[in-house]
Amino acid sequence: MEYRFLGKTGIKVSRLCFGALVIGPLQRNLSVEEGAAVIEEALRLGVNFIDTADLYDTYPYIRRAIERSGIRPVIASKCYAYTREDAKRCLDRALTETGVDTIDLFLMHEQESEHTIRGHWEAFEYYLEQKQAGVIRAVGISTHHIAAVKAAAAIPEMDVIHPIVNKRGLGICDGPVDEMLAAIKEAHDAGKGIYGMKIFGGGNLLGEFEDALRFALGIPWLDAIAVGMQNIDEVRMNVALFEDIEAISRFGGRAAAGPRKALHVDFWCEACGKCVERCQQKALSLKDSKLVIDHDRCVTCGYCSAACPLFALKVY
């Protein structure tokens, strides 16, 4: 397994980061023991970096995987907090539910520009205080926006950026992939740690699996890449491919033919529109009092399901 330092943080991470979203309630909804077993296999094979978020409800999986394996990975989490009080609540929850004393990376979730970063600054100042106290090791943002990457690159206090990037630019909200790559390079050159997400476009690029993976691995400014893995076979395959992309021939058509996730609407949906407001990708709309999904725009993040008061949206 290849390891790199995240920018100037001094934190050494595996190039393959375990994306914990898919095993949790918003997507596969594995039991804690099932999900912990998947994480444990990744840790056993040398993956030392896990990405999660307050929204994902996957802290218990990570805690159980640490208990089962005896391995303490680098943990990155994210939160939507605006205020100091909410920031404290999010951080306390992360520490309590994972059972660790420090969180390696704590990020402001889904930032859009310098304006949203400024709007969350009270929370960010709390994270900076906790970094000074040694409770957080590095701080930063996650984003689907080029503007936010550029803004974070210019802020000295920002250590790490977690941007969306893939060969077709799926899910980038404010421009094409070449502009996102230019922004990522700018941030990298400014000393920021960068780890990418959604390299398969939320499953939309699984039919182009090899090209999508080669594209992401070929981006020199990505210190790590988060990949969602929902079973042990996927863990073993991705570890092998991150170690040597030419090993793809060993897997035949399995890599490209993996199941494509999709967002599904249950019959009890009342078309209240809360999910439409939540979706940054503009993949949801209401038509004739029914929810309509644009699957070409959807990146199957599952965040809309968290906004649904009736739990009528699921990703599988």
Rank of each mutant, 00 (worst) to 15 (best):
S14N: 14
N238R: 00
E41C: 01
A216F: 00
G202S: 12
I66N: 03
M197Y: 06
V315I: 13
T300Y: 01
G171K: 06
G258R: 13
E157Q: 11
Q230M: 15
K167H: 04
M180P: 12
S14R: 10
H264A: 14
K150P: 12
G171D: 00
R89F: 05
R168N: 10
E277M: 08
M237L: 07
I11Y: 13
I161R: 01
F18T: 09
V235D: 05
L284A: 02
K88P: 02
N238D: 10
I117P: 15
G207F: 01
A37T: 10
C304K: 12
C275M: 03
I248Q: 05
F5W: 03
I245T: 03
C17P: 05
E186D: 11
F106G: 01
A36V: 00
R168E: 15
G207T: 04
L45I: 08
D211M: 03
L26G: 10
A133F: 01
S77H: 07
A123H: 13
N231H: 13
A65E: 10
I103A: 01
G203L: 00
P259A: 07
N166W: 00
Y59A: 08
G119L: 05
I75W: 07
G218T: 08
G169Q: 03
F311T: 15
H145S: 12
W268S: 02
Y126Q: 13
H188L: 06
D233L: 02
H264G: 01
A190N: 08
C269H: 09
P309H: 14
S142A: 09
A42E: 05
A240E: 15
C301M: 08
M237I: 02
F251Y: 05
Y59V: 01
H145V: 02
L107Y: 06
R44E: 14
Y303A: 07
V47Q: 15
K290Y: 09
G258A: 13
L107H: 09
T96D: 09
I161H: 02
C17G: 08
A138F: 14
L128S: 10
G10C: 07
P259E: 10
S305G: 12
I71N: 06
Y195Q: 14
I23S: 04
N29C: 00
L128M: 14
R118G: 03
K192D: 12
I23G: 08
A94Q: 15
Y195G: 13
S249F: 01
S69A: 00
G201E: 05
K8C: 12
Q111V: 08
F106I: 11
L286G: 05
D223C: 04
G140P: 14
K290R: 08
M197F: 07
V13Q: 03
E40Q: 05
C173L: 05
E34S: 02
Q230P: 13
G273N: 02
P259F: 03
I141Q: 02
A133K: 15
L213M: 14
E33N: 11
E179G: 09
R137Q: 11
F200M: 07
D266K: 15
I75Y: 08
A20G: 06
S289A: 12
E210S: 02
A133G: 10
C173N: 04
V227W: 07
